[in-house]
Design a protein around this nucleic acid. Structure first.
Length: 217
DNA sequence: GCCTATTCCTCTAGAACTAA
DNA sequence: TTAGTTCTAGAGGAATAGGC
């Protein structure tokens, strides 16, 4: 149910036509993407890039898993929450080691099983788990974040409160396609950073003619 | 057991203020 | 008036505590 005449696919087309392909996630390796998914929690991507730059000489799971926690926390300091994130990275690597540090092992798992296992790791929540599954493991799962809720609520969709219900809304409305989910989430992020900020820049937004938030201003 | 509110910690954007 | 600096509120995901 929604209060807009547009479908989720039509909104995707509008975003894609305006911004073009985003080709996320910005990482050189699958492992870098996984780390980035943890480091980007509560932080802007610019600061994550600084932390990843510090980690570049050690960017393989073996090196990071052996690294002293104090050193790791210093290296990831630019991304904020460095003490918390150090523990989360170590927890994740403890789980990843059981998989032989192999992304191919993850690819062979059923998506739901993989997600359940990731969520059982202390420090990995829904958004982080889904980001890893979509962008590092290349499995089709829609990543929901605060931008997603804000954008579609403003447009006029009746967005459920809980994460899984929002995700189900997208899964049931869109083709199950890794590239589509990848691009859609990236486009939502860039749109919310450009126009649909907490204080919206609606006057210049190309979606304002179909946005309830703008019409009711 | 499930749901909600609070806490954690740091950065950023924007507002407010000061000095030239 | 402008430029530079300082201050403040808000954003962000996950864990945890507390209430139902």
């Amino acid at each position: 149910m929604n209060n807009t005449e547009l479908t989720l696919m039509e909104i995707y087309d509008k975003l894609f036509n305006y911004y073009g392909p985003q080709n996320w996630w910005p990482g050189d390796t699958d492992f870098e993407i996984m780390l980035g998914a943890i480091l980007t929690q509560n932080t802007s991507w610019e600061n994550v890039e600084k932390a990843i730059l510090n980690l570049k000489p050690y960017l393989d799971p073996y090196s990071i898993s052996k690294m002293d926690e104090n050193i790791l926390s210093v290296l990831i300091k630019p991304s904020g929450f460095f003490n918390v994130k150090t523990k989360r990275i170590k927890n994740f690597l403890g789980w990843y080691e059981q998989k032989g540090f192999s992304v191919n092992v993850l690819r062979e798992m059923k998506t739901q099983d993989l997600r359940d296992e990731l969520l059982s790791v202390n420090g990995i929540g829904r958004e982080t788990a889904d980001s890893i599954i979509l962008y590092a493991v290349d499995k089709p799962i829609f990543v929901v974040d605060a931008y997603t809720k804000r954008l579609f609520e403003r447009i006029g969709f009746e967005i459920p409160k809980d994460y899984d219900s929002i995700q189900e809304l997208f899964h049931s409305s869109l083709e199950t396609n890794t590239y589509l989910f990848n691009e859609y989430h990236a486009l939502i992020v860039i749109h919310c950073k450009t126009f649909c900020k907490s204080i919206g820049r609606c006057e210049n937004c190309f979606l304002n003619n179909c946005c309830n938030f703008y019409k009711n201003k």
